[in-house]
């Protein structure tokens, strides 16, 4: 597995897109910090971008990589290696290289700006952590979609649709539901609905450290209890881990029966 990981990582690290992605984050970091001069604001703006963009990039990269390396994968499949190792290697290769682009791209400007002297270091690290989680989650999800769809166009379409659903539509439905069933106690429902969307969950996780915890406390006892303590943080991270484990598990299960 580590051999495959190594080579797909090399391959991706030399791809133009990795650089584009890296340079995008680098430029974003510098622009945010040096035009704004406010680390706190930069962290909030970054959150908005990371929450939306990392899942999208993870999804697109995942699907593209899968379909583009299909023939090569076949060559690998004829080698004496276990199937799951090939795909886990590729999966980790993409996820790690994307995460590296993110961490270095944003890390360099922030370090240059003097992050270590700033109180925002914790918020910022959390931001990168969540970005990394989202990379791993969405690459895994997109691999699942690609594995289930032989047709490249279809697979790509579904993957984008999945992103659109989790990034936008889900919240729209969620919001409508909350407004519509206004008179019922909704905090438990909201809490659970948040857990079922990794993007929402990541957003909450960052907001817990930024500004939302007390705002949530404003609503109901369940929220206050959950978000007011470290329990919320721990549980959120735990569920994010599940969001990686489940698609990876399904990927491996799917692989056992898959024809190439």
């Amino acid at each position: 597995m580590f051999k495959i990981l190594k080579y797909s990582f090399y391959d991706l690290m030399r791809s133009r897109w990795s650089y584009v992605y890296f340079i995008f984050y680098l430029a974003l970091g510098f622009i945010l910090l040096f035009l704004n001069n406010d680390v706190n604001k930069a962290v909030i703006t970054l959150m908005n971008i990371i929450i939306v963009l990392t899942p999208l990039i993870g999804t697109v990269f995942g699907v593209m990589y899968y379909y583009n390396s299909k023939e090569f994968t076949e060559l690998l499949l004829a080698q004496p290696i276990k199937r799951s190792k090939i795909f886990m290697g590729q999966y980790l290769g993409i996820s790690i290289s994307l995460t590296l682009s993110l961490v270095l791209g944003l890390g360099i400007p922030f370090v240059a700006y003097g992050l270590f002297r700033s109180s925002a270091i914790f918020d910022f690290s959390l931001l990168l952590l969540v970005g990394a989680f989202l990379n791993f989650i969405f690459v895994a999800l997109s691999f699942n979609i690609a594995l289930s769809n032989e047709n490249k166009i279809k697979g790509f379409g579904y993957a984008i649709l999945m992103w659109l659903f989790l990034a936008v539509i889900y919240d729209g439905v969620f919001l409508t539901f909350l407004v519509f069933f206004n008179e019922y106690p909704l905090d438990k429902f909201s809490l659970i609905a948040t857990m079922f969307n990794p993007i929402d969950l990541s957003r909450i996780l960052i907001l817990l450290k930024l500004d939302i915890s007390a705002l949530l406390g404003y609503t109901g006892a369940v929220f206050r209890k959950f978000f007011g303590t470290n329990l919320g943080m721990t549980l959120s991270i735990f569920i994010l881990v599940l969001w990686i484990i489940f698609p990876v598990w399904r990927m491996n299960r799917k692989l056992k029966k898959k024809d190439f």
Partner: peptide
């Protein structure tokens, strides 16, 4: 305005849909 009417919607703070 929405949060005023339905406080629970605060969980959607800073989500893309809300920005839209």
């Amino acid at each position: 305005y929405i949060v005023n009417r339905t406080p629970e919607t605060i969980v959607l703070l800073r989500s893309l849909f809300v920005d839209i």
